[in-house]
């Protein structure tokens, strides 16, 4: 009796709680995507029109995020900046996940010598903090959005690669892979049917969280003057431009930063929900 009760009650409750966080973060991401695709629909005014009579106005109903030193509407600039910021984030996270997939698979599946070498490479890359690796690349390639994508992508790859490796290894040593071997399935069949899908699924979560983290890293580079430069409305560039006015117009840096935080948080929350629903095995 109680067993049945338990089984029917618990999942329903859990699912409802999952949905609130999931919905909130999904809607947030959706709004940002809309801003990236059709900024002119969402932005109240043109992000590039200067009007020095309205320079450095604090946030108001007319200008939700205030205006910058050239009188441009900051809210519109943030919306127009979404495209480039998201592109950098998606590009960097995509590159990071791709490199991680290659390195992690080799480290987990290759023969002893090759796997050993790749494992060492991952270890060495891991010794370089993301930001330092990015700075090193920028100093070689010069600063540009593409450099930023490569730098942040490669910088985050070793961490992801470790996760991929761990995932593949645990799948490879799992009971279901042994059961498949006992059924007489060929090695490649097992890889294709069990190991690869089970390793790929967490990557969706890693990628989602990675987009948010990459935007944070990229804007951090811009903040110290080594990312996308003003007058682009890319979020990092907005931070860079706003630094000069921190004492008299703090909204110029606080609000774009807040937008980045919200996006990163939404991406993390969404990624975590994907992860936990995958772990429960019912997604």
């Amino acid at each position: 009796m109680t067993g049945v009760l338990e089984r029917t009650v618990a999942p329903v409750q859990r699912r409802r709680r999952v949905r609130v966080g999931f919905l909130a973060s999904a809607v947030t991401i959706g709004v940002f995507l809309a801003a990236a695709v059709t900024p002119h629909v969402l932005a109240p005014s043109d992000p590039f029109t200067m009007d020095f009579t309205r320079a450095l106005q604090s946030p108001s109903l007319a200008h939700w995020f205030g205006t910058d030193e050239s009188g441009r509407d900051l809210f519109s600039r943030v919306i127009y900046g979404a495209r480039e910021s998201l592109a950098i984030g998606v590009g960097a996270a995509g590159l990071g996940v791709l490199v991680a997939l290659v390195l992690g698979s080799i480290a987990a599946l290759a023969g002893r010598i090759l796997a050993g070498i790749v494992n060492r490479v991952i270890e060495v890359l891991f010794a370089f903090p993301t930001l330092l690796l990015a700075l090193l690349l920028v100093s070689i390639l010069g600063s540009s959005p593409l450099t930023l994508v490569i730098a942040v992508g490669l910088g985050s790859a070793p961490g992801y690669a470790r996760m991929v490796r761990g995932q593949i290894l645990s799948s490879k040593n799992s009971g279901y892979v042994e059961a498949a071997r006992a059924l007489g399935h060929a090695r490649f069949t097992i890889f294709r049917r069990h190991i690869l899908p089970n390793a790929l699924r967490p990557l969706i979560a890693i990628f989602t969280m990675g987009v948010g983290q990459s935007i944070v890293w990229a804007s951090g580079m811009a903040f110290i003057g080594l990312g996308v430069a003003p007058p682009s409305p890319e979020w990092g560039a907005l931070l860079d431009a706003g630094r000069a006015y921190i004492t008299q117009a703090s909204w110029l840096i606080v609000l774009p930063g807040f937008v980045i935080v919200v996006l990163a948080l939404a991406a993390t929350t969404l990624g975590k929900h994907i992860q936990s629903s995958l772990e429960k095995g019912d997604a």
Partner: peptide
């Protein structure tokens, strides 16, 4: 935990600077 872990240091630093220093 989740919120603080995701805070970019530059932004957090600015907030602390604005509130506690300025």
């Amino acid at each position: 935990d989740t919120v603080t872990a995701g805070l970019p240091p530059y932004w957090l630093g600015i907030l602390l600077l604005l509130v506690f220093a300025l």
